[in-house]
Amino acid sequence: MSQASISQRGRDWFHALCGQASLQQGLPPSLLVADGELAGQPARYVAVVADPENPFVRARHGEVGLLEGWALAATIDAAVDADQQHAHKRAIVAIIDVPSQAYGRREEAYGIHQALAAAAAAYARARLAGHPVIGLIVGKAMSGAFLAHGYQANRLLALNDAGVMVHAMGKQAAARITLRTVEELEKLAASIAPMAYDIASYASLGLLWRLLKAEQPDQPTPADVQLVHTALTEALRDIQADPQPDLRQRLHGEHRQATRQVRALLQQQWTQNGG
C-alpha cells in the first residue's frame, strides 16, 4: 500500500475541538480519547491516529487494526457503563480520519473482524442507550475502518474538501479488483454516484447530515473550529430532539430511491397473511 504522507487531520481536529481536556490514559497511543464538553454538556471525543511505533506493524499509518478496534470498544463501552444510571448520557464525538482497516497476517489470524465488530457494536450500543453519537469526517473514512469508527453515529458531518473521502475501497485497489484501469473507474464513477470518490457525490446519497466548508481543513483556523463547534452543537440538539435513536435519518437521499422502495415493500409484506 502507499506509504504516502500520514494524515495529521484527525489529531489536529481532535486537539482543536477538545481544547484543554486531558487525554485518557491506559489506551494505545493510536487512540486519542478525552472527556470534554459540547454545548455545556459532557462529551467524549475519540480519534484514531497514526502511531509509528504501533506494535502491530501493519497498523502504523492510522489504520484501524486489532488494538484500535478493541480499544475503541473499551472506551465507548466504558462511557456507556459509567452513564448507565444517569438520565443524561454524555455525547460521543468520533473524529474520523482513517485511511483503511489494517491488512496483514496477524490481523486476520487474531480476528481483526471481531475487533472491528466490538467497536461497531459499542458505538451502536451507545447510540441505542441514548448517547448522542456524532461522526465528524475530517479526512478519509474508508471501508471497515469507518464501519468501526463513526458509521454508527446518529448524525454524520463532513468537511467539504478534496481531502475528505468516504469509500469501500481505495481507487487503485478497487480498479485492480474490478479488472478496470483507474481511468475507467473514474469514468464510471462520474455517472454512478455510489462509486464516486468525491464528498459531493457521497452527500447525494443522503448519508450526511451536514457538509461544512472549512477554510483550512489541514490546519483549522479559529473560525473553522467555531464553524465545526456550532455544527456539532446543532447536531447534538437535533439528536436530542429526535425520538428515534436509529439510522432512519439517512434514508432520504436523492440516490437512495431503490432503498426506500424495497424497504416499503418489505414492510408491507411483513405483516401480510397474519405472518
Binding site: L147, Q152, A168, M169, A193, P194, Y202, L205, D246, R250
Partner: peptide, 21 residues
Amino acid sequence: VRLQEANLGLAAIAEIHSAIA
C-alpha cells in the same frame, strides 16, 4: 460490499450492524 455500488453497499452494511445491535 459490492464494489459496483460501493458507498451504498457500505451504508447498508452499517445499517445491518445497527439492526443486529
